[in-house]
Design a protein around this nucleic acid. Sequence first.
DNA 1: TTTGTTTGTGTGTTCGGACACGCAAATATA
DNA 2: TATATTTGCGTGTCCGAACACACAAACAAA
Lengths: 365, 365
Amino acid sequence: MLVRQDLSYFFMGKKVIRIKDIAEKAQVSTGTVDRVIHNRGRVAEDVKERVNSIIKQLNYEPNLMARVLSSRKTFNIAALIPDHKIDAYWSAPKSGIKKAESEFRAYGTKIEYYTFNPYKVESFVKKADELTKEKPDAIILSPIFYKETLPFFEKWKSQNIPFVLFNTEIHEYDPLSYIGQDSYQSGLIAAKLIHYGNPDPSTFLVAHIDEGTANAAHLEKKEQGFRDYFEQNSLSDYQIIRAELNTAQLSSFLNAFDTILRENPELKGIYVTTSKAHEIANLLQQKHIRTLKIVGYDLVSKNIKLLNNGMISFLINQHPKGQGYWSVSHLVDHLIFKKEVPMLKYLPLDIVTKENLNYYLDSDE
Amino acid sequence: MLVRQDLSYFFMGKKVIRIKDIAEKAQVSTGTVDRVIHNRGRVAEDVKERVNSIIKQLNYEPNLMARVLSSRKTFNIAALIPDHKIDAYWSAPKSGIKKAESEFRAYGTKIEYYTFNPYKVESFVKKADELTKEKPDAIILSPIFYKETLPFFEKWKSQNIPFVLFNTEIHEYDPLSYIGQDSYQSGLIAAKLIHYGNPDPSTFLVAHIDEGTANAAHLEKKEQGFRDYFEQNSLSDYQIIRAELNTAQLSSFLNAFDTILRENPELKGIYVTTSKAHEIANLLQQKHIRTLKIVGYDLVSKNIKLLNNGMISFLINQHPKGQGYWSVSHLVDHLIFKKEVPMLKYLPLDIVTKENLNYYLDSDE
DNA sequence: TTTGTTTGTGTGTTCGGACACGCAAATATA
DNA sequence: TATATTTGCGTGTCCGAACACACAAACAAA
């Protein structure tokens, strides 16, 4: 008969501590140590303290492999996200979620998708209701409807279901974690880029296109960052104007834009705070106007085309794929590995030109 | 007595395949399946085929947790890297390696560091010799000395020790993987940035500072990218000049630079292809020249200071930390998880301004 | 005092895979 | 033919942690 002896092995000169080692040192059984670790009760107070102090002293770190393997739970994560068939932007976060899903599948995570129409509140509420009924172990969502989301937060909170937000930040009922971009900083960057390309005093337009109240806070922060750049650098001879445009009503959109062009002959740059820079760029292309610098957001295909032909100067990439990925990753760290996860994770803001576009298109963060 | 029955559990509707399941279906024992999987021989040919076809058919994916847990090997990885006390640039890759080390410690990886003086070949050779004697399970290195590295590659190759290169690319004796930046593309980007800020025809300087032959290929590629940008965009009325400067001999450096300034009154921008943009920026600051746009590389503290006060317009970040991290990560994927790893990984090129600097300073990729 | 419940602790099985060993049958060598 | 060796396959233990269960002692209720 084979008996491999108890190695209690060493790693980098240090003994690797197992529950068994703690048990021996504390003169109790592994079961007791386990009960202490998981606070499952049924342990005498003095023993508990003794074990805990030994755990601390030996700097015990549980073996995650063994933990995952032995407690073979499956965690159901619900992802409440906008339908990418309706707004292409959302395909990136989804692919990030999918990437994480496949990476963490082995740990027993399962993701159920609830997709809603980003332009219809009812659709959001309906899906959120469905999801809540299923009582998932955790939730990922982009709460683009502020008012309607709050009651759900309350419910999840009371049911102790952790949720992670991405893309859109809501502070109330603190989520486990928020993954997103720093809108204010991105406004600063946009300003820098536009200013850098137009060193002489002129007029710049901040255009909020096609996003109503849903993202209002974000857009405001972006605009504030943009304006503050000029303020901070004492560039008071630059004029910043703003416009809210909606391409749904095409003719009024065209009119409004024409008016802006007419009334601002000194206009040299446009900062589009949403992913709709292509709407403006297309228009300018049709009008054969090539003197305006456009800075926009997000690597959606329509933007990419116009970045490549030079109509758009820069796109700021908010790592939408990374947002999806990290949302899941944080949840897995929390649920499975019981790690502390940061409450806030701002993803980097990448400045994308046609020259470095390739990296961001299929970067697998 | 408790008997938990064999669950052969389901996940997302699909049965999760274990060795046991394969064994049952193939009417053999798990030991046999194991021998097939690991090609340990001692299996009849027909059985082997049967098992293999079932593995394929059921799309068996080994449980990595279980694998790591049961085969409790420790892998010794040797990291051969330049001393960051001599050149600050190298602290970033090292911190990336350390990050990966702590992340993968649980999988049984141990990293031994061999640091050499990046300015002394002998130092490199000595450390490489030491390392080779230790017969590590894998090697990570930045082969900044081309000629001297080749014999080691040969040796490691013959000893079947996989090695990963980062930062500096050498094609011969193909490494397991190369992690680095696309120098040519970064030249293009630099050109775009400098041109964007100087739309009117003028002169630009490509300055190679303080790096001799070690990085020659890289620097050439950068310059080529820079020049090609103007070519591709038919900007033939821009003049591109080049200079190789060495700050070690200070007076000749100053003289050379003065000459350049004197002879090129139309000079509007400087592209520093190394991490030494601060040398130029400092000089210009002393001379109170603020009309030149400088684009350089790497977030070393001296550069950061000058980025923040506006002397340097942009820094291109080559993700040095990520290079270290991904080197280890690829090795772990290969050694432990037996995954396919890409032969080439170009990390993104980030355009850093003082506005988005924060993200890159402690971004934990 | 007897019976029931709570508290404290130890034991044994399991997760999926790796590998050492046992052992019979087939084949080779004497 | 007797003895060695190789080949093919099964069994059992272990990795470290989780958790179900067994069971004695302490305490409470009858």
